Simulated assay, not measured.
Amino acid sequence: MVSSVASVLAERKEAGSGALIGYLPVGFPTFDESVDAAVAIARNGVDIIELGLPYSDPVMDGPVIQKATQHALANGFKLSHGFDAVRAITSRVDVPVLLMTYWNPVVQYGVERFADDLAAAGGAGLITPDLIPDEGADWLAASERSGLDRVFLAAPSSSDARLRQAVDASRGFVYAVSTMGITGARGDVDKAAQILVSRLREAGCENACVGLGISTAEQVREILAYADGAIVGSALVKALADGGVDRVAAVARELAQGTARAN
């Protein structure tokens, strides 16, 4: 089973560069603008799109993303809009699109039905921040059947056994959380990320991508010196909030300058 996400990461490695992964929420500031913004970042250097499903209790999201997702919910976001967005984006750009969602909405929707609808829309898979592999049997089975990638999180506080579980259960990449706590752009990306990626490699991880707190091309370059992908969220969401689609495209272009690394 070929993972479209792993294929892109392998291509970037082959080219001597790492991947830039960009997060945006569906429905912010409007549904159409969220689709246009995702297409714009893909056309300006983002290799993989992480599309967030707005949720009423976003425990892992920082203030910028929380504000955007609350705005989308107030505008009437429904879970099915996530599949509509994936379909609209993948019809315009050839970039893997992963949905990022808390687990409860998937259970409410129906795990098998969710997997089928995401695959039918052209989605690459799911990032599940609050689902741990040993509680994810239903999703492991559904993603196996539907060929979807599954991205589990690893944190600096994770035990070696937990890291091995995340590595074994993930397909596409393991999401290495660079700092403890919530998302948000930080001046200095936590050094714990480097140690965490090193521990993931020891656990057999082929693709480790680092997220939480990355906001500049220099930080992207720093991360890609040891990781396979750099995940940027708040900086892109803030750009979209401040200056619309043109601004988020420009920020993506700036961030992408950090992906070229010395061979």
Rank of each mutant, 00 (worst) to 15 (best):
T259Y: 05
L236Y: 01
V245R: 01
A185E: 11
F173Y: 15
T90I: 06
F114Q: 02
P133T: 05
A252E: 00
K13A: 15
G187N: 14
M100D: 04
I65G: 03
K191R: 07
A155Q: 15
A241P: 05
L140Q: 15
M1D: 12
F77L: 14
T216K: 14
C209M: 03
G233S: 10
L9V: 12
G18K: 00
F77M: 14
V59N: 10
A85P: 08
T90P: 03
C205A: 14
E14W: 09
T259V: 14
A192T: 09
Q70N: 13
T128W: 00
V64A: 15
S4P: 06
D57L: 04
P133F: 04
A176K: 08
L98C: 11
I132P: 07
I223A: 08
T128G: 00
V39T: 08
G125D: 05
L126Q: 01
R247T: 05
A241K: 14
S159E: 13
A235D: 10
G233Y: 03
V107Q: 08
V26G: 04
A121V: 12
L20T: 10
S56P: 07
L98E: 10
L140S: 13
R221F: 07
G181P: 02
D61E: 13
P105D: 02
L98S: 04
W139S: 03
F77G: 00
G172C: 13
R221L: 06
E202R: 12
C205E: 02
K78S: 03
P96C: 03
G18R: 07
Q194M: 08
R247K: 15
